[in-house]
Design a protein around this nucleic acid. Structure first.
Lengths: 260, 260
DNA sequence: TATTGTGAATCTGTTCACAGCA
DNA sequence: TGCTGTGAACAGATTCACAATA
């Protein structure tokens, strides 16, 4: 998907003439492309806003207030405004944000106005699920290759792609301009594949294998770990049931601390 | 898996006699079951430590220093020590931590010394992958049910389980003591299933559907979202390539801000 | 007038650096 | 002596509350 470049509603584009006053105003604005340094926490929420905005655009909404957008994204409005302020001043006081314009600005900030070629390594259950995942292909990402070490699955057709042998890893990355690799291999193979992937020049990895990968400085790794998520839920679940049954169970063999 | 309850090495258990001095010491300890309030960031890392420790236990290590354990978990040692200090004083100065003992303490804190029944709703590609995921079943979690709305898949056998119809949701939750539900449905169905699940008394949900669920206060939701992770990677990837090609692309149609 | 954008206050998490202890 | 446990300093993120303004 390619995103068009709408202008800010009510602001002149480059083609329009700017009066000295307008120019001063523009230049003074504490924003626009914004110097390096959008907080990580903000970056992690931009996709959420983008998704909410896309829903609104589909339903034909032209503008949205920070209050409404925040509600749709499941955050509070102060946080939303602060987050968006890191990108620039794209709202209009008294009105809200132009939906299309904000979609474009967030997409651009996230790098979704270009296409990213993604390779998925490991075509087990999870790899297949990922390959078939629709939301994947839309919005700037394109699965460019499926790779596996098992000769049994090499040659299979999944989601319109031919599964290739892991030996082709470096060639595929180079030839198809793969810049993001998704690791869906068994834990035991993940580090070794990561090493090859990094050596081939990839600096962005999404890791589904339950291992801590070690990679050089400058390589970004994001990790998705089902069992960690479950354990976090179990922790909170335990607290809830503790509370109902009257306090936590006695700690091991130790007496409760007493206030002296 | 059931975890035995080892005693702290070098500390007497309940059976042992405590001298007045030892008793004072124990009671004064600013720790043990620890009053409510382990930081969320710490909780999120405990599973990581646990995994590293399990690896060490398998390799026969008896004790480990904060330095080594931290390295294995991919964090720095000060953070590790601070995290563990929230659980209690389970290390020995000059020595390190007893591996088995620490496994037990973290397991107990996370609620993994009991078994949690998990239901997976939505048996598409992802649901199947989850049902077959090994790390799931071990360590305190048991897949107690697979549910789907599609009559086509109801009755299938996956990972040794019979896929049941979503109509059975409430009955299954009640009868099998399900306390954690994994949502792997299409986005459009997720909220509706979440509502039923919550009404049936479940307060812990792991959501794979790309929607913001709205649930009452007190219900814990964790979200795993592939496309968000990719977008975050794309953001950083873009920065990296910007840097190499000499600064970011011009922002939209606006002139660069000028220092007046 | 309604709503943004943002300083200031607060809260949460990380890192430092070393006292305390086995 | 070596390593944990933790105050204190720091850094980052959230929330408040209101001035700026379309």
């Amino acid at each position: 998907m390619t995103v068009a470049s709408p202008r800010h509603p009510s602001r002149p584009g480059r083609a329009g003439r700017l009066s000295p006053l307008e120019l001063r105003h523009v230049i003074r604005r504490p924003s626009q492309p914004r110097e390096r340094g959008i907080p990580e926490a903000t970056v992690a929420r931009l996709p959420l806003y983008l998704r909410a905005l896309n829903g609104m655009a589909e339903r034909g909404l032209a503008t949205v207030s920070s209050e409404d957008l925040a509600a749709a994204a499941g955050v509070n409005s102060a946080k939303l405004r602060k987050d968006l302020s890191h990108l620039g001043s794209y709202g209009t006081r008294g009105v809200g944000y132009d939906v299309e314009y904000l979609i474009y600005q967030i997409s651009r900030e996230l790098g979704l106005t270009q296409d990213w070629a993604v390779a998925i390594v490991g075509v087990g259950n999870l790899g297949r699920a990922l390959a078939n995942y629709g939301g994947f292909v839309s919005r700037g990402f394109r699965v460019a290759a499926l790779l596996d070490a098992d000769p049994e699955v090499v040659g299979d057709h999944i989601a319109g792609l031919n599964v290739e042998h892991i030996d082709e890893l470096e060639a595929v990355i180079g030839q198809r301009g793969v810049s993001i690799v998704v690791l869906a291999t068994p834990a035991a193979a993940a580090q070794q594949v990561a090493d090859r992937v990094v050596a081939a020049g990839v600096t962005s990895i999404l890791n589904f294998a339950p291992v801590v990968l070690s990679v050089p400085e400058g390589v970004d790794i994001r990790k998705v770990d089902l069992s960690i998520e479950l354990q976090i839920l179990a922790f909170h679940e335990q607290r809830k049931t503790d509370r109902m049954t009257g306090g936590p169970a006695m700690a091991d063999e130790w007496p409760e601390a007493v206030d002296l």
